[in-house]
Amino acid sequence: MRGRRGLRAVAAATALLCAAALAGCSAGGPEAAAPTPRPGQTPVWNSSPASVAAVGDSITRAFDACSVLADCPEVSWATGTDSTVNSLALRLLGPAGVAGKSWNLARSGARMAELPEQMAAAAAERPELVTVMMGANDACRPRPEQMTPVEEFRASFTAALGRLRAGAPKAQVYVSSVPDLHRLWETGRVSPTGRQVWSLGICGAMLADPEDLGPAAERRRARVRERVVAYNGVLREVCAKDVRCRYDGGAVFGFAFEGRQLSPWDFFHPSRDGQARLAEIAYRQVTRK
């Protein structure tokens, strides 16, 4: 949008967003510190950021990637130091940079309601890039009716961007789509070990009774997938309102994880190989001109 009409439209859209979210919007909204560039201005997005902070959940903590029931942040797709994974931070900053200019602030088990606090912690580090991968746990509840409502998800994500902008107005944000949990079910359900582990209660809304192909079970899984699609719509829409935010366009959601790319202990979280694939996707998105 250009000129006064465009600025008025941005202000109106921001006001509506703040009203809907009821939280997280500082004066002027998340866009206030990062206005849309005008023709002739230097592009806002920097494809070579010099520092990286990661927020999110167990995927970013690389839970179950190295050993059972344990985080393994050294193989995290976002900030890991393992050369076989070749994390986003390792590609952007090199080994020395990862040690001193990257921070993994994610927490296993976190849901979107926690993201504002994580973003505030990220802002305190003044990073040039913040990676976000959050939302799988909002859908992975014991039963579908316990999934986070879409508007609550939207309010929390909007508030999170507001917290970041309050403390680090020029930080760039890379937002990963939520993985396709239905595809993970399709991949892991063929493993007897995977089915046994899932019976302990992992992501019950999607993974309970994995061999049941009856109408009720299929409707339950479809309901969870629809919610993930809705979450990704929220991530796309809210991110699009901030000129320093880049959504992955559904790249992670569309990625077809194979058996070797899932944890051998839970057949759900990414393995080292899966983490490496996430790092590749992120690097392509962040460095895209």
Rank of each mutant, 00 (worst) to 15 (best):
P73C: 09
W77L: 02
S176G: 11
A123I: 10
W198V: 06
V98R: 01
P142A: 09
K241L: 15
N86Y: 05
W77Y: 13
P116V: 13
V85S: 00
T36C: 15
H269Y: 08
L161C: 04
T60N: 07
A166R: 03
A19N: 07
F153K: 01
E117G: 12
V85L: 05
M147T: 01
T42M: 08
N137G: 05
K241M: 15
A160S: 13
A21E: 02
K241N: 14
D242E: 14
A34T: 13
R195F: 04
G109R: 10
A160Y: 08
A21P: 00
A106I: 12
Q146H: 09
E226K: 15
V68R: 15
T84A: 15
A160H: 06
F257A: 08
R284I: 04
V10R: 06
P179E: 12
E186N: 09
S176L: 10
G274Y: 08
L69R: 15
P127T: 11
R244Y: 12
T131C: 07
A139L: 06
G3C: 03
W265G: 06
V75C: 07
R126M: 13
R288S: 11
K289C: 13
K170Q: 15
G94V: 08
H182W: 09
A155V: 05
R220S: 03
L90E: 03
P116M: 13
A282W: 00
A23Q: 15
R244E: 08
D242P: 04
Q172E: 11
S58A: 15
D248E: 07
S156E: 07
D209R: 14
F267I: 01
P39A: 07
T131E: 06
C25I: 05
V197G: 00
S26H: 12
A155Q: 06
A216H: 05
W265K: 07
L181G: 00
R111Q: 12
F268D: 00
S176I: 03
